[in-house]
Amino acid sequence: MATFFGEVLSVYSRAVEEDDRDDEDGENEEDVEIRRELEEKRKVHLKWCSEECQAIEENSDKKRLCSHLVIAVGTNAAGFVSAFILNSASWHRVGWLSVWNERSRGSGPMPAPPAPGEPGCVIYQQKDDDSVLICQCTCYVAEDQLFQWTEQLFMCLQKRGLTVTVLSDVPVAEYKTPDYIHGSDVPFLRALSTSAYKGGVICPFVEQPNIVTGLPAAVLCHCQVHGIPAVLYQNYSDVIGADSYTMEAYRLAVSSTKGIKLDPPSTDVLQEFTKVSDIHGNLYT
């Protein structure tokens, strides 16, 4: 506000001041404690299974050497990893990320390791080769937990020599294009990479105005900031559950990854991953 002589005066809203005072007075110690407990409960925790890995976690100066990290986000991405890669006996669980929010299971900040088939973020490694890690994530990670999730996962990894591949499921309804999408064109892949990634991609890049959101976007942003070569493959599909045809779309994206061998799964294995979604996807059940 200015006077006739050009002097600037500060004007405060009495209503705003009174509202703020009422909020402060209305928040008692119990409300503060509840909010503090919720914030603590929503923290993302990384837990390693072996004592050697736990020592790396406790020692911030000691980093885990890893040449390639594959992160699978979504039902079909995780299903592809389970059916085509982890189906081999050479892979075993080495850690997990615990996530608690309004759409996840669990009752505490550090739940027990998720059982096979349950939602979670589980980290796998080959028994005879520790240069490749696979993180399989099928649980929901809230917006306020995305930064924590990426920080927890990458803070124990040596960034030098590391390459990241992210596989992500996306509904085809979110794909924006002026052209009509034929049913025979679905599923299809679109890629997005960091500036440090110099490798080739097997599909077109994400076209504008399409965007990347959620956990894949958080991982790619982290890699871009820290100069880590990373590539994201988004699988646009019209199915809501696990589907063998949709899983197959990821094959070329991972086939050239050194240290990962793709074993064609048997029909029984694929049916094991898809039968649950078939049951829940029935309109009359």
Rank of each mutant, 00 (worst) to 15 (best):
S10V: 11
V11R: 12
Y12F: 12
S13F: 10
R14K: 15
V16L: 13
E17P: 01
E18F: 05
D22A: 11
D23L: 15
D23S: 11
G26H: 12
E30D: 06
E33D: 11
R35P: 00
E37H: 12
L38R: 09
L38T: 10
E39P: 00
R42N: 09
H45Q: 12
H45E: 10
W48H: 12
W48Y: 15
A55Y: 00
I56S: 00
I56N: 04
N59Q: 13
S60M: 10
H68K: 07
L69G: 07
V70W: 06
G74S: 11
G74K: 07
T75Y: 09
N76S: 03
A77C: 06
G79D: 07
V81G: 02
S82E: 08
S82L: 02
A83L: 02
S88T: 12
S90R: 14
W91R: 10
H92L: 10
L97E: 03
L97A: 04
L97C: 04
S98F: 05
V99R: 01
R103C: 07
S104I: 03
G106M: 05
G106W: 03
S107R: 11
G108C: 14
M110P: 00
P111A: 11
A115Q: 13
P119M: 01
G120S: 08
I123L: 09
Y124R: 00
V132P: 07
I134R: 01
T138M: 02
C139T: 09
L146V: 00
W149Q: 03
